[in-house]
Write a protein that binds this DNA or RNA. Sequence first.
DNA 1: CAATAAGCGAGACGGTACGTCCTGTCTTGAG
DNA 2: CTCAAGACAGGACGTACCGTCTCGCTTATTG
Lengths: 207, 207, 207, 207
Amino acid sequence: MVDSVTAQERAGERSGPRRKEEIFAASLELLAGQGYDAFTVEGVAQRSGVNKTTIYRWWPSKSELLRDALLQSGTLAFDLPDTGSLTGDLTELAGRVEGLLAEPETRAVVEAALVGAVRHPAMRELVTQFLEDRLGRHQPLFTRAVERGELPADLDPALLVDAVAGALWIRLLVRRRPLSDDFTGQLVALLADGISAARERAGRRRG
Amino acid sequence: MVDSVTAQERAGERSGPRRKEEIFAASLELLAGQGYDAFTVEGVAQRSGVNKTTIYRWWPSKSELLRDALLQSGTLAFDLPDTGSLTGDLTELAGRVEGLLAEPETRAVVEAALVGAVRHPAMRELVTQFLEDRLGRHQPLFTRAVERGELPADLDPALLVDAVAGALWIRLLVRRRPLSDDFTGQLVALLADGISAARERAGRRRG
Amino acid sequence: MVDSVTAQERAGERSGPRRKEEIFAASLELLAGQGYDAFTVEGVAQRSGVNKTTIYRWWPSKSELLRDALLQSGTLAFDLPDTGSLTGDLTELAGRVEGLLAEPETRAVVEAALVGAVRHPAMRELVTQFLEDRLGRHQPLFTRAVERGELPADLDPALLVDAVAGALWIRLLVRRRPLSDDFTGQLVALLADGISAARERAGRRRG
Amino acid sequence: MVDSVTAQERAGERSGPRRKEEIFAASLELLAGQGYDAFTVEGVAQRSGVNKTTIYRWWPSKSELLRDALLQSGTLAFDLPDTGSLTGDLTELAGRVEGLLAEPETRAVVEAALVGAVRHPAMRELVTQFLEDRLGRHQPLFTRAVERGELPADLDPALLVDAVAGALWIRLLVRRRPLSDDFTGQLVALLADGISAARERAGRRRG
DNA sequence: CAATAAGCGAGACGGTACGTCCTGTCTTGAG
DNA sequence: CTCAAGACAGGACGTACCGTCTCGCTTATTG
């Protein structure tokens, strides 16, 4: 191979701590296992077999570590559904949010992000950006729906995502109630009907 | 003196510390002013002119104090709208949630409740109960709507509240974006349309 | 007893930590046992069965603790000799300095004071004041010698103390050599002879 | 090439780091500038433009570096006075000690040596050896004095040096007082008179 | 003049101690 | 019974140095 520099070197990135993996793993385990308060730098150090100073060499504070651990974990990343219909896609989306918030481990991670966001501006920004990014990636889903004539172009699609995710959020994280039989189904149906009505109205306006 | 005990004492309840008011006030001020991390028992004691031990005499832990402070504050309590139509009532409701989450002070209080709920089971329960209570009080709103024929009886009304509150929650607290022009209006309209469709379908089924 | 307030309260003094004694003892033991580097706040805390925070509640820093431990210990305090002759008194004095610097434990304490003085202005001042105080108390020794006609009034008596203490200091602490057979005796004799000569000269001048 | 190795290599000595000079200079500057606590290996490395590992490659520990820096610096070396009389020589000697202890920079260096000696056996030995060496070199001074009949042969001359240096040491480093008008003069005179008396006595004994 | 060793910069690391902040407990004494 | 005052244990935070280690680069020998 002619060019022997690594991708990292080319990109000018720092290599980071040697046991990055273990550190992140320990962080997430603590979070998922015993909740936010168990996530201490000293605990992470011990569990990952690393000295506390090593952690502080790489992250200026606890919250930065939390941030990176969350970012690096796949937990918060889910891919784009494409079922062929808006209703199907929304249902899929809802299912993923539900999975995220219902599983104890992933829920703990989300909650940690939340607590971090409330307490640290930097973390706040991160969460915000992260979500914007995720939402941006969902754009094609709505573009397709518009093309299929399922969604009026003047309806802000983020509204749909927020309503679905928000309702689940409130139920699962705030009200802490298990989802009733077909909560998700009813919700999506309601929104789908609302969209249909809006579309028809829009059609009449234009026609 | 025949009956000098207060109603509270008669009921076996503790009267609480003499400077309860100041303690709650200090708690909320700290929360609203500098965020969750500034809410320390020592800070509250100092600000309210009370000794730390006094606080611990009355509340077993910081989170109980937080709970009571939140409960006692009117912040989270809003009354039942009655505009004559479901759409109107939902719009009103949305407006209240929006007010709660958009104002820096009340938002800080809500966030504190949130952080507390994540970190302490007791606080968690409290928030849950509190919300159930609030939602229970909103029941008449939906009963009226059903009576007016605006709402099919088989639609879980909590779904509506959760969708409205949840969408606003996601927007304002999680994504941290200001509300676009008529976010609330669009959202309520969407749900109202969905309900109409559901009602019509229900009508056809019955008819 | 009519008046039940303690002397401390009357004087308005703080009572200090409950286990003051143990803390000082632990400090001096560590110093004397393994030298200055073994004198760590955490070590003192552990050895005295006290929490680190307790130490920091009472002493703003390690060096203040060191200072108080030294002050409180009798190590550096020695009383006034009175043998009836200047030579005798100086010999006594030399013996005490020698005892202080030759015994491993007390030597360690002196060295600690020294290191502290070099590194911390506050400690420096303390040592200085402490010595001035001690020297001030030796004044009567010289007054008596002048009255007995053993010491010319125009000779700075501090010179004698410094020469005696200094020579021993250099020998024992700086050069680290054991004292030869009659180091102290020779030294005192030399100084006594010098004083005699000075006195005679002074006598001739006056006479 | 028959003999290209340097004298050092022949003797088995390492040549030392390339920027030895800078390292020593940086060490002494830090010491003289901000005192012992500012003398950190990392500080020296930075100031001398050398990597920390380079320092540790050549000196096993901080104290060894300190030792070599002090040794290499001329600070502690002073040459042999030869004024023709014992009194004159002692006065000269006293003046040099005074210069050493009174100048802030050199005083800082001496203090550093002191602290080092207290904390590290190796450093202790060094100081001791160093001083023995210096004193050994002063031997001729006393030999001359004996030859001139100024000093009885049975008086340990080191006593004189220790008394002079010690008194100044106590005054300047321990008591931290400026020297009074003719402290040195008085001191030397006192000792000289003492010596005269001793000599006369010795003369009588022999005679 | 090429191989090889010596010296070095860079950077990661474990470890010890420092001094700080906060939680929650306990005791004493005053009203 | 309520409270102020104050001491305390405990746990975590973030910082500063010490001394160690490994990796590759460069510069000087030296064979």
